Structures are given as structure tokens and as C-alpha cells.
Amino acid sequence: MLYNVLKLLHVLSIVVWIGGMVFAHFFLRPAALSLEPPQRIALMHGALQRFFGAVLVAVIVVLGSGVWMIGRVAKETVQAGLPFNMPLSWHIMAGLGVLMMLIFGHIRFALFKRLSRAVAAQDWPAGGAALASIRTWVGINLGLGVAIIACTLLLV
């Protein structure tokens, strides 16, 4: 039962993270382009601040639940007297997932900090540049997230 609850939390956290990136990248940003830079950058800052808080929680849940689930399967396999051979899809999921977490750390703690400073100083060109960098890295993370989902579902 605990395994199933952790798997549910794992998947729901991924839905929040990937779904939020899709929403921000393909819906919020294009709609915000109709606003003047001060309003657009302030709106994106506020939305990203809330989203990044949720993603930080999601990252912790995904990492903790993923490590626990792999550990549990490995322990049960070894206790049954069998060798534990982690499936290729799990290796891909874990490796790319950690890469996504590192990229998120860069986005949240470096690029978003630049955006926050620009908004506080009302330096809209610097804010626009920070948003452009965030957009690029979010796009990369979104691609990695989709690749993880594809590998997990298509590789058995």
C-alpha cells in the first residue's frame, strides 16, 4: 500500500511539474505578450514565483519517492535471492530526472533571482533577458520531461 501511495505522489508531482511547464510555455507566456513589458514581466514573475514553489515541493517528492521505490524493489529482489537488475527505462528516468532537477535548480536559484532583481529595480530590459533565459531552460526541461515519460511508457 505504501508503495502505491508513493507512486501516486510521484506521478502527481510529475503532472504538476510537466503540466505547469506546458501551461507557462505554451499558454501563459503567449497570452502575456499582449501586455506592455512592465505588466508582462511582473505577471510572469508572480506566476513563476508560485509555480517554482510548487516545483520545489514536487522535486523533493519525486526524488524521495523515486529513491524509496527503487530501493524497495531492489531490497525485495535481493531478499528473494535474485540479482537486482534495474530496467533500462528506470535508468533513463533516474538519470534524466536528476538532470531536470539540476536544471530546475539553475532556473530557480540563478535565473529567477536575476528576474526578481530586475523586477525590484524596474529594469524591464534585464527582466526580459532573464525571462528569455528562463524560457530556454524551461523548454529544455520540458523536452527532457517528455522524453522521460516516453521512455518510461515505451521501454519495457
Rank of each mutant, 00 (worst) to 15 (best):
A74D: 08
S13H: 01
L153D: 06
L155H: 07
G53H: 08
K7H: 12
A150D: 08
V5H: 07
V73S: 06
V61K: 00
L43T: 13
V55N: 02
V61R: 00
K75Q: 15
S65G: 08
I70V: 15
A118H: 05
R50N: 13
M101I: 14
L99P: 02
R29F: 10
P37C: 02
P83W: 07
I103W: 07
P125E: 05
A58P: 02
P87N: 04
L33N: 09
G19I: 11
E36H: 12
A74I: 04
V59R: 05
F26V: 05
N4C: 02
C151N: 14
Q122M: 13
R117W: 03
G97C: 11
L56Y: 13
L155Q: 08
I149N: 08
M1I: 13
Q122H: 13
A121R: 13
T77Q: 01
P38K: 11
I60P: 00
N4A: 15
G64H: 08
A118E: 07
V138N: 00
F109K: 01
H10P: 03
M69P: 02
W137Y: 15
I18W: 03
G66C: 05
T77A: 08
W90G: 01
L154D: 07
G128Y: 02
M86I: 11
K75H: 14
S89F: 14
V11K: 04
L154A: 14
H106W: 12
M21E: 03
L6D: 01
L82C: 09
L28P: 03
A121Q: 14
V15Q: 06
V67R: 06
L35G: 06
G145M: 05
A47L: 05
L115I: 04
G66P: 01
L144C: 08
G64M: 03
A126H: 02
T136D: 05
G95S: 09
P125N: 05
F104V: 03
L63N: 10
W68Q: 04
Y3M: 12
L9Q: 06
A31V: 12
P38D: 09
P37W: 07
G139Q: 06
S116P: 01
V138I: 15
F52Q: 12
I60T: 14
S34N: 11
L8P: 04
A74G: 05
V156A: 14
A129E: 11
C151S: 15
W90Y: 14
Q39R: 15
L111P: 01
W17C: 02
L115N: 02
W17A: 06
I41P: 03
L144F: 09
A147P: 05
H10E: 06
